[in-house]
Amino acid sequence: MSVIYILLTVSIIVAVIFFVAFIMAVRNGQFDDGYTPSVRMLFEDELIKTNKTITKNNKD
């Protein structure tokens, strides 16, 4: 029945991984600004468009 030790170890490791991920996210400031990223991610299409036009301009 020593399989329970393996299970416990695995569960603790998984929990600790998530916990460390949370601490790192807080430390990187992910919880400081809750609004801007939600807007920023909608800009990605526009960014690609302008990048292309710029490279086109440079080729000319």
């Binding site: 600004d33 609004y35 801007t36 807007v39 920023r40 800009f43």
Partner: peptide, 27 residues
């Protein structure tokens, strides 16, 4: 507004010396 975020995060198009610009909308 969102246009403000967009233009200020694309400052490097106006001057390539600016390598990165990031807006905090709340602040």
């Amino acid at each position: 507004c969102s246009s403000c975020i967009w233009i200020l995060e694309n400052l490097n198009k106006l001057n390539p010396a600016i390598s990165q610009s990031q807006v905090n909308f709340g602040k």
